[in-house]
Design a protein around this nucleic acid. Sequence first.
RNA 1: GCCUAGGUGGCGGAACUGGUAUACGCACAGGUUUCAAAAACCUGCGAUCGCAAGGUCAUGAGGGUUCAAAUCCCUCCCUAGGCACCA
Length: 805
Amino acid sequence: MSFYNPKKIESKWQKWWEKKRIFQAEDSARGKENFYHLVMFPYPSGDLHIGHWYNFGPADVYARYKRMRGFNVMSPIGFDAFGLPAENAAIKRKIHPQKWTMQNIKAMTKQLKSMGNSYDWSRLIITCLPEYYQWNQWLFLKLYEKGLAYRKKAPANWCPSCKTVLANEQVIEGKCERCDSEVTQKEIEQWLFKITDYAERLLDDLEMLDWPERTKIMQRNWIGRSEGAEIDFPVTDSNLKIKVFTTRADTLPGATYLVLAPEHELLNLLSARILNKNAVNEYIEKAKHKSELERLAETKIKTGVEAKGITAINPYTKKEIPIWISDYVIGGYGTGAIMAVPAHDERDFAFAKEFSLPILPVVVDGKLPEGEIKEAYFGDGVMVNSGELDNLPNHIAKDRIIELAGGKKKINYKLRDWLISRQRYWGAPIPIIYCSLCGTVPVPEKDLPVVLPKIKDFNPEGTGKSPLAKSKKFVNVACPKCGGAAERETDTMDTFVDSSWYFIRYADSQNKESLAEEKKIKAWLPVKIYVGGAEHTVLHLLYSRFFTKFLYDQELVNFKEPFLALRHQGIILGPDGQKMSKSRGNVVDPDDLVEKFGADSVRMHLCFMGEYHHGGPWNPTGILGVHRFLGRVWKLINDQRPTTNDQRQEDKNLEKLFHQTIKKVGEDIEAFKFNTAVSALMILLNEIEKQKSHLSPAACQIFIKLLAPFAPHLAEELWQKFGNETSIHLEKWPEYDEKLVMEEEFELLIQINGKLRDKVVAPKTISQEEAEKLALDRERVQDQLSKKKPKKVIFVPGRLINIVI
RNA sequence: GCCUAGGUGGCGGAACUGGUAUACGCACAGGUUUCAAAAACCUGCGAUCGCAAGGUCAUGAGGGUUCAAAUCCCUCCCUAGGCACCA
């Protein structure tokens, strides 16, 4: 008798699966429906951590289950290989980003293979290779062609000391992470994708997705549709107008001043008329030192300055009102200016209080408040202080006011265009050439890819440009139009561009002629189920949806949404309940666990830990439970491996439990409730052991099959010990008998006044009369009743009877 | 401040549509086995009163609805994740 030794069997089966190409997905398989199962591809940061395992392990349980349910499953894997850490490593450790990245990929591939997941490695994608990113560039050109890629000045975090652009991540409390000097905003020419053109569709199509409701809500909020009106406020003694967006046009009569964002263009146009130029400029300068988040986080104290010398006219009341500047108004949202109605908006109210500005109520519920106004009123009511519209309900007055003020109705979105320019080396070059004669010229398709050149110096250049700008060989190029001297764009693309379409590439990852062959796209896409972290609820998922819709419009794909179903895994914290990090020293290394318990135990423990989307602190001893369980399974099957002509039958109750377990495990995997599926298997094993009876070969094989998605190596070993020569993972999932799942008897609960007093076994179909009789005959019930008459009897068929006295 | 989840034994967590709260596992305690330890196996394990039978109390706190509430409603407290003062 051998002991369960995962080390002996796991690598053996991993190699066998690879050799036999068990998990390589054919583009079509006879009689089988294609099923595209996808996990979010990892960034090659160095080591696979337990969080990766938590994402990939249980997701693979699902993939294997689907395969056994008769689907032709494709489960691909790859690496999201461009990004900031590689460039940081280059600067810090003098190692080329390419080398660093490829080293990490090599190490992580080895770790990934040790998990024994059913990946189709033949479809591997590495986004930093030209054969991948040329299609990034190709997509850029398509977007450019359709007017959806454009260039404009946009702010970037700027460290004046390092003379470099910083990512948000590199700004720590408003300071540069390297040199600690204060970060400011610098306006530079950058490329953007016009995702806002798709706002409506991105919002509407959420309806058709099987996604977690909270993820949909977050996307809806991010897109942020609001219906309102645009109203022009003429500037006094000028032809200029200040455009304002409002959802509460009914409160226009109460707009007692305007507030402009510090970056509002009008401040430049009218700077000559501003009397307190110094104070205004100082305020604008200060605002540049705040990140948008900081500006918006200052909830209580409002700052601002009046632009003295310029005023505007309220287009409804025709009254002259002052113009203020404050950073709680954001340039990038709406029109960058608001009409302030302190009586009916909380923020305006706080601002008006701070600077003693007039507060004029125009909508009241009941009668006009007397004396000082204590808070803003947001509800509905009737108009007051509004001239001819007085006494009209505000929602009726709204349209009249828009009309009278010369405004027009408008739908506004919070969503902003997607800024894809990165002033960095380690990314896909943007395929654009600037010619002094021809202007902006896209690189012709035939010249793709624009290969990222190998350079040696990754330190910032000092002008805010990418380190690529230092490579004369790269920059200087002949204009594709006129042949004259021209220069290449030196910014690279946001890595989110790479990950916004990678799921399509898996359908045909080796294709050299196109992004992917149409036939193959049709065979596999859209993704049936996508599994990954909740940290991607907005950006990655929204960008992927945008790309898909764009490709749909170009008739390059035939589906509108990339991921039909979505599931998130939770975050595993360190044993101390804190986020895992190397500096805290609370990182759980999956390699150690695999070494000690085997991959099967690790993945099964991750399944068993708790609800999949919850996560939580890592329990260092908990894994022993499933490890023991697998050892017991090993012993059970090995001990009583019977001959194939064994005709023994299980006892009735055990047979019933088998069928119930088949049902439960299948349904739970389908619902991503891996924890209760594992528990059901444990209950079944406990019962088998309790009975101490030998199992029939059929029962043994059913048990192994149920275990196969969770502990694939162990299951394969036991399966083939039975004399089977084909992989268990291509076997059919066992069926259950609906009749055997049903119970004929149950424990009737007997309650008195809602308290449980007794139980009695009864047939499932027992009627109320019978149940009542049964209950009232019980001694314990008689004692409780003690001659009192039941007032009321509640009977829940198949469950309980409650006697109220 | 806003949005979204959550809060159940010593711990991770179960609990269908409101119907046996604490499944399954960890830890712990006692036992079997052993020269011994480990492993394995068996038993016990929410709190409290009781010799026991059994009772009473417990799902963040407080109220409510109901024959019956972890589950539904209201108020409050705490934790996590997200955020964009969005006009």
